[in-house]
Design a protein around this nucleic acid. Sequence first.
RNA 1: GCCCCUGUAGCUCAGGGGAUAGAGCGCUACCCUCCGGAGGUAGAAGCGAAGGUUCGAAUCCUUCCAGGGGCACCA
Length: 549
Amino acid sequence: MTPEDLAAAIAQAVDQALAAGQLSVGLDTEVVVERPKNREHGDYATNTAMRLAKANARSPRDIAQQLADRLRAVDGIEAVEIAGPGFLNIRLAAAAQGALVRTIAERGSDYGRTETLAGQTINLEYVSANPVGPVHIGHARWAAVGDSLARLIVATGATVVREYYFNDAGAQIDRFAASLDAVARGEPIPEDGYRGDYIVDVAAEVIKANPELLDEPREKTLEVFAHDGIELMFTAIRKSLSDFGVAFDVYFNEREMHASGAVEATVQKLREAGHVYEADGAVWLRTTDFGDDKDRVIVRSDGRPTYFCADLAYYVDKRERGADKVVILLGADHHGYVGRMRSLVSGLGENPDETLEIIIGQLVNIRGGKMSKRAGNLLTLEELVEAIGVDAARYALVRSSMDTTIDLDLDLWASQTSDNPVFYVQYAHARIASLLRNGAELGFPLPDLADIQLELLNHEKESELLGALGEFPRIVAAAAQFRAPHRVARYLEELAGTYHRFYDACRILPHGDAEPAPEMAPRLWLCEATRLVLANGLALLGVRAPERM
RNA sequence: GCCCCUGUAGCUCAGGGGAUAGAGCGCUACCCUCCGGAGGUAGAAGCGAAGGUUCGAAUCCUUCCAGGGGCACCA
């Protein structure tokens, strides 16, 4: 019996009580089933009776009593107790608990998937680093979190389009080209230009491909530097991300959008909606009508649209391509953008509460290692991966809530010890894989599921492990719904600990030549079920689940 | 000045209204005739402050204090 099955049974008990006239008002929300922290409170607990108390004007314990009587009759429920202010503490029969192993084994890599968000199409944009420099640590967090979030959303039944906005228009491109041009000519880089070793490398490559370039008029060289430089940067960016295990479904070109007239069309739409006025030679949108603190320019006095005008056109494009919801991951340094963008969307006559979700994440600081002491240049994604590896990097970046600023300790994440959380989780997986290999070699492969007696899994540590495994689908669903991949990481760490405690207390393979005890066959399957959940969870984070390490 | 995020154990962090607030590291004391000790057991130690809402608040609201980030006809 899974927690979901139990929740359904409780809901049914409520319905029966309603039908029997014991209750006059039902539940207005889903049944809440939780694992009590204290084992004496049973395998599961529900606050259903307390939630029903007020609307029915009855005492919670009184309602709990009636629900308990009905639940005791449910197959698989061994005991129901009323405790505290009106909790129902429920204990499952060992066989009902053990049956979870069969569920997990049968679903395999699908265990954890739900249909929670089925039917939705979500456009998820993240990273979108400008092609004027390498992917650095500031982007890496969104690469790790965004990719994991995409996997989570897929696991809850929704359709995801992973999107990268390739920002190849605007003033930063001009500054980038000017910087390359200056370096190539041996001139000082302009005040507002880009510095860094990569500028020198890119300039050299462009010159290599166009040996005569510097003989051309400056107008022409800037054009070539812009075009070829962006091309080179973009290739490098895609390679860094791909080496990091992150790929996108759509790489969207800003330049093409301008060329297609989509930006113009969006301005026209806003004009028709009546929120536009002209002042100081520029075109303004009256975003103050939608709660912004001041109006915003959408077309500059020189006739070029501003970046958020383009961003709005981009939003429209995503919606027209079928996105029910446009989700964008941004760093905290962009938080001022949220209100503006919401106002712009409102200006189009859409409801940003329903169609736009901008997730603001806090930034990443580096500690430890030699990288943190370097002046000037930011740590690049490539350097991060070189320092601690892809698994540790992804795990470290995805393990904290996005609301928390991360202080990344490179020495810790590079270490191959249990201090390092990613090793703790991967180790548990490798340990189980090794155990199953040993078992097969000793003549104890995983037996046929139909032949094992799952009710023998009645040891306290087995019960705790089963309980933890049963939580997985709800953890995944909540992580997707709250856009909080770190919950999966934290869960895996707990699961690894729960497994180690079980392992410490319960013998799985026989000693030497001894005959296997009857509970060993189901235990092997319990191990396999745990391994599957660890592997499925790590996959959602984009981290490998090693067979040995 | 205005806006956003954060403040939980010595350190790094979980905890999205429920029972006695958790984990890892560090510290103290333990467990190897035993399937991977990269493990486990036990212990000391905490919600920034003050109000409020609620049967019940680390969680929601208000104020204050402290730290971080932001407030362009740049992106």
